[in-house]
Amino acid sequence: MDRYQAMAMFIRVVDTGSFSAAARQLGVGQPAVSKTIAQLEARLQVSLLIRSTHGLTPTEAGQNFYERARNAIQEADEAELSAKGAGAGLSGRLRVSAATTFARLHIIPELPRFLADHPQLTVEIILDDRMIDLVAEGVDISLRMGTLTDSTAIARKIATGRRSVLATPSYLKQAAALRSPADLANYEAIIYSQLPSAWSFLHEGTAVSVSVSGRLKVSAAEGLRAAVLADMGLTIASDWMFAPELDSGAVVRVLDAWSLPTIDLWAVFPAGRMITAKARQFADFVESIMKAADKWRGRRTVS
Rank of each mutant, 00 (worst) to 15 (best):
R215F: 06
S211W: 05
D183Y: 07
A185C: 00
L224V: 04
W199H: 04
G214H: 01
A220R: 08
W199R: 09
M232F: 14
I236A: 10
M241S: 04
L229E: 03
V210F: 05
V228R: 05
D247K: 14
A189C: 13
A198W: 10
L195A: 12
T235S: 14
S197E: 15
D231P: 06
P244M: 05
I236T: 11
A230T: 08
I190P: 07
G205M: 02
A227D: 05
D183T: 08
A207D: 07
L202Q: 13
S248I: 09
A185E: 13
G249I: 06
D247P: 01
V210I: 05
A221S: 14
P196H: 11
L234R: 01
E222L: 11
H203T: 00
E222T: 10
M232Y: 10
L246H: 07
K217D: 06
Y192W: 08
I191Q: 07
E188M: 01
A220C: 06
A226K: 15
M241E: 09
Y192F: 15
F201T: 00
D247R: 15
S213I: 00
G214A: 12
K217V: 15
A230H: 13
A189D: 06
S197D: 15
I191N: 03
S248L: 05
E188R: 05
L184S: 02
G223D: 09
F201W: 12
L234K: 12
S193T: 09
S213L: 07
A226C: 01
A237M: 12
M232R: 15
L216C: 07
T235K: 09
I190Q: 04
L234D: 02
G214Y: 02
S193H: 08
S197G: 00
S211P: 06
R215H: 14
L224E: 04
V218T: 09
S200V: 11
E204S: 15
S238W: 12
H203S: 10
W240Q: 02
G214Q: 14
A189Q: 12
G233H: 13
Y187L: 04
S219I: 07
D239C: 13
L216D: 09
R215W: 08
L184H: 02
Y192H: 03
E222H: 01
G233Q: 12
M241D: 15
L202D: 11
V212T: 07
G214D: 12
V210L: 04
F201R: 05
S213W: 07
R215C: 00
A237S: 14
R215M: 04
L216N: 10
L195D: 13
P196D: 09
H203G: 02
D247A: 15
D231M: 01
R225A: 01
S197V: 11
Q194E: 13
W240I: 11
A198L: 09
R215G: 06
E204F: 01
G223A: 09
